[in-house]
């Protein structure tokens, strides 16, 4: 069973549609036991960090998510909330990854949000087994995670190299939206669903 964590952050439907195109059904849930018993957990997210963390804490999901041992995939804001801290709303995150999330500087040459299709490189780990270096993924974000030892894919914008994906043990995160990234994105979701 694939649990999709429900905590009031958007784009859940896009994730469910993508799962369904791949032949899987996601269960949207905020129930701690359902999440603990899931084979895989997807932690989507579109929205604002401090509001999202507040919702997770109110539901008691922060401790639950941290303690999971099955394959876990955070998407976009989901990945950022897995980090220790975000400059967005000065938010303390789940701390699964020790990284800090910082804001892109904006200018007319590098606008914020970083929105659109960008290429990813330095691909490491099981999510990217069937994806080529330089594949294009769809990004929409104003904050980023710098490169670190947990970086599993990199991307470059406005002269800044940042983490397009993170991975540590059972925990994985993508800054881009695999569910919105056409066939390349579907290969990543498919690797998460089938190969792990």
């Amino acid at each position: 069973m694939i649990a999709v964590v429900k905590y009031g952050a958007g784009n859940i439907r896009s994730v469910l549609s993508a799962l369904s195109r791949l032949g899987y059904e996601g269960i949207v849930t905020d129930d701690p036991d359902t999440i603990r018993c899931a084979d895989k957990v997807i932690f989507p997210g579109v929205g604002e960090a401090s509001q999202a963390m507040k919702a997770l804490r109110e539901k008691g999901l922060d401790d639950v998510l941290r303690s999971l041992t099955q394959p876990f995939l955070g998407i976009c804001l989901g990945m950022q909330l897995m980090c220790s801290f975000s400059e967005e709303g000065d938010t303390e995150g789940l701390g699964i990854f020790p990284e800090r999330v910082i804001r892109f500087p904006s200018s007319a040459d590098s606008k914020v949000p970083h929105m659109g299709w960008n290429s990813i490189s330095g691909l490491k780990g099981p999510l990217f087994g069937s994806v080529s270096e330089g594949s294009f993924m769809y990004f929409v974000h104003s904050y980023y995670v710098p490169l670190s030892q947990n970086t599993a894919a990199t991307c470059s914008y406005g002269g800044i190299e940042f983490s397009a994906a993170l991975a540590k043990d059972n925990f994985m995160g993508t800054q881009f939206h695999p569910e919105k990234s056409g066939s390349s994105g579907e290969r990543i979701l498919s690797a998460f669903l089938e190969d792990l």
Binding site: R13, S14, S17, A18, S20, R21, Y138, V140, H177, E179, K180, S181, G182, S183, G185, E186
Partner: peptide, 11 residues
């Protein structure tokens, strides 16, 4: 919008 979201994988 529901139908489109089910079918396409771009924004």
């Amino acid at each position: 919008v529901c139908d489109v979201a089910d079918r396409i994988s771009i924004p």
